[in-house]
Design a protein around this nucleic acid. Structure first.
Length: 685
DNA sequence: TAAAATGCATGT
DNA sequence: CATGCATTTTAC
């Protein structure tokens, strides 16, 4: 309002410096001389496009989606052109694009998806784009451009007559799908190109990779398949490479920068239409996206560790909503989030019929043990020993153990149910002050504990035993090779079909040629006792991921579970009913108001900063605030943590409030940065 | 985030 | 009412 910008060339008395530095005017692009640019500056305040003048020399190269360098706040920064416009509504002086780097890499659709993801997680667009677009590799780009120029017969994805790849099925799926009710509908809708969203639970006896490849084949358009890690990726790649040939691109951060960027360019130019990759591949800029598949969405590797910490499943969901692309969330187990999407009719559940599910390895528990078993309470009860012994008669045996470590939590002395906070149902632990108990989530003190199950008033500490399992087994089976697989001792990928014992920590189970003849799942009780909100969920998922490693019941495959036989997690395994377990867990979360039935936000930082944050955030009455409670920071600065639980219907308000608060909270220099995460992996505990 | 603009206490 | 340093504002 006050000092309106003066006409070009007219010097102001007080801006002599600027005038003397001003460059001679550069001719501008005739058409749409303004570029809206998202600058790579990660400040919540600056999370909006900035307008720049497009010089004539960039008129044709600075198209939407291209990487540019611009002068911003005195610095040269990277950015992307979001759009070209005839004019700007910016009142001040516009700067000029400094450089254009390569061709377009950011499609309009990915930009919109990334914007929605940033909004959902109270992050910035530039943060999300950093995840969505791999770092530029100039050499790879040059090589790619040269190669593109050479090949005259560039495969046109528009051309329906292109015989390079024809769907191997005419909307018909392979026979394995026969036991999956609703699969015909699914393939039909994929073939005709209508939107379908599915929660797919795969039975242990079936091959998920071939099945998911079937779905990709059934869909005539582009597909993106996301797996959690490099191990899954290589298994999928073997099958996908065979089935999709040159249409397949692999997007993974494990590749070299050059390879990764080359694959990305193949995708963004539309030369490859089927993408297989790890979490960031969920943003793959394929041409006419038709199908997204997320494999094993309960795996935490699908969460981007850097801010704003998006989950590939949620990104896929957002992208599906924005584009109408079909969505398949598949796994041997069903995550609670997926169960929720099913219960909200956002996903259609598809799973194998009971007969097919029951065809997997038979599950034994202590309840199956005959007569009194004196060792039933020990770490490796008698029926588990027997399971190992019998298994060794015709193949390898897997012994799955939980991670070691002390668990500072308490359980009912009598019935061993975990002691929980009557207020927020967080786990109770020994209070740091005094001798009482305190909630580890909301810091509420609990003086008079009463077990809601058996009314006991005494508690006991729960801890994991040390991992002597391998030695114990070795001395019990002297002639047998006992190998250990774990992140500390080294992970074994695969083993032969020879009789041997593999002791593996959860998540490090090798694949056995011809499958294991038996498996023993240990430490279930201790893992079920962990204070984390998602401990049981992770255990159930791990168990269901282990079943396929063991021979089916028809070949004598047996799995022994040492955890409490009547626990619903064990029952789910016995009955091969992961969906039922997820439904019940969901109902519990609903009853206690915990995620995913509520949207969670975890804020950590200096106590004063937290106060400011919460004020600006304007929590509604329907939101629950847990804490602030002190967090045991390794650094000397005192840190607190607040957990905010809001109804998911108010997720947008929560994120918007968080963003407002992040802007308002002064960037306390030196102090520990205020951190805010929405729906983090570790919500509570 | 980094520079510019503003604010505030201090000293002449 | 300059001067220096801290805090706030702005960024095309």
């Amino acid at each position: 309002m006050d000092q309106l910008p003066l006409d070009v060339g007219e010097p102001t008395p007080k801006s002599g410096l600027r005038t003397s530095r001003a460059k001679k005017p550069v001719p501008l692009a005739e058409l749409n001389p303004i570029a809206a640019v998202v600058v790579d500056v990660n400040v919540p305040d600056l999370d909006r496009p900035f307008d720049y003048l497009v010089p004539a020399k960039f008129a044709d190269s600075a198209v939407p989606g291209t990487r540019v360098r611009v002068r911003f706040a005195g610095r040269l920064v990277d950015g992307y052109v979001l759009a070209r416009q005839p004019e700007s509504d910016h009142q001040g002086r516009l700067s000029t694009l400094s450089k254009v780097l390569g061709g377009p890499v950011l499609t309009d659709e990915v930009a919109r998806t990334a914007r929605a993801v940033a909004d959902r997680y109270a992050g910035t667009l530039s943060e999300v784009l950093r995840d969505a677009i791999p770092p530029r590799h100039a050499t790879a780009e040059k090589a790619f451009a040269a190669q593109e120029g050479d090949s005259k017969e560039r495969p046109t994805s528009e051309d329906p007559g292109d015989a390079g790849f024809a769907p191997s099925t005419d909307g018909h799926l392979s026979p394995v799908w026969a036991s999956y009710e609703g699969a015909d509908q699914l393939s039909l809708r994929l073939a005709e190109g209508t939107t379908v969203r599915v929660g797919l639970t795969i039975a242990a006896s079936d091959d998920p990779i071939e099945m998911l490849a079937d779905l990709v084949s059934a869909a005539p358009g582009s597909a993106v398949v996301v797996v959690p890690d490099a191990t899954d990726l290589s298994r999928f790649e073997t099958v996908f490479a065979r089935r999709f040939g040159d249409d397949l691109a692999i997007l993974s951060a494990a590749e070299s920068t050059a390879q990764r960027y080359e694959q990305f360019l193949e995708v963004v130019t539309g030369r490859r239409t089927i993408v297989l990759g790890t979490r960031s591949a969920v943003f793959a800029p394929v041409d006419r996206l038709q199908l997204m598949v997320i494999w094993d969405d309960g795996d935490d590797a699908l969460v981007e560790p850097r801010a704003p910490g998006w989950h590939a499943r949620e990104v896929a969901s957002i992208r599906s909503l924005g584009t109408g692309a079909s969505l398949v969330i598949a796994g041997y187990a069903q995550s609670v989030e997926t169960a929720r999407m099913v219960s909200r009719d956002w996903l259609v559940p598809i799973q194998a019929d009971r007969m097919r599910r029951q065809s997997a390895a038979r599950v034994l528990t202590a309840a199956n043990a005959v007569g009194d078993d004196p060792s039933a309470a020990s770490r490796l009860p008698q029926f588990a020993w027997q399971c190992v012994r019998r298994g060794l008669q015709d193949g390898p045996v897997l012994v799955q153990v939980g991670r070691g470590g002390y668990i500072p939590t308490v359980a009912c002395q009598q019935c061993r149910v975990i002691a929980r906070c009557p207020e927020c149902s967080g786990p109770l632990g020994r209070s740091a002050v005094g001798s009482g108990l305190a909630c580890q989530w909301c810091a509420r003190g609990v003086d008079n504990f009463e077990c809601p199950v058996c009314e006991g008033t005494q508690v006991r500490a729960v801890r994991l035993g040390s991992h002597r399992t391998a030695e114990e087994l070795q001395s019990a089976f002297p002639g047998v090779a006992v190998r250990v697989s774990g992140s500390d001792t080294g992970v074994i990928r695969s083993i032969s079909a020879e009789p041997q014992i593999v002791v593996a920590t959860v998540g490090a189970e090798p694949v056995a040629a011809g499958r294991y003849s038996a498996a023993v799942l240990l430490d279930g009780n201790a893992m079920l006792a962990r204070p984390e909100l998602r401990a049981e969920e992770q255990l159930v998922r791990r168990w269901f991921n282990t079943v396929p490693l063991v021979k089916p019941a028809s070949e004598g495959g047996v799995i022994a579970v040492t955890a409490e036989p009547h626990h619903r997690a064990v029952q789910a395994l016995v009955r091969a009913d992961p969906n039922g377990w997820a439904q019940r867990e969901l109902a519990d979360r609903e009853a206690t108001g915990l995620p995913p039935t509520t949207r969670a936000m975890v804020v950590t930082g200096a106590p004063e900063a937290l106060t400011t944050f919460l004020e600006t955030c304007q929590p509604r009455d329907s939101w629950r605030l847990l804490g602030p409670s002190p967090v045991d920071a390794e650094s000397s600065a005192s840190q607190s943590r607040v957990v905010v639980l809001a109804p998911t219907a108010q997720g947008a308000q929560l994120a918007a409030g968080a963003k407002r608060a992040l802007i308002a909270t002064p960037p306390v220099s030196d102090e520990v940065r205020l951190r805010c995460r929405i729906d983090p992996v570790r919500v509570l505990g």
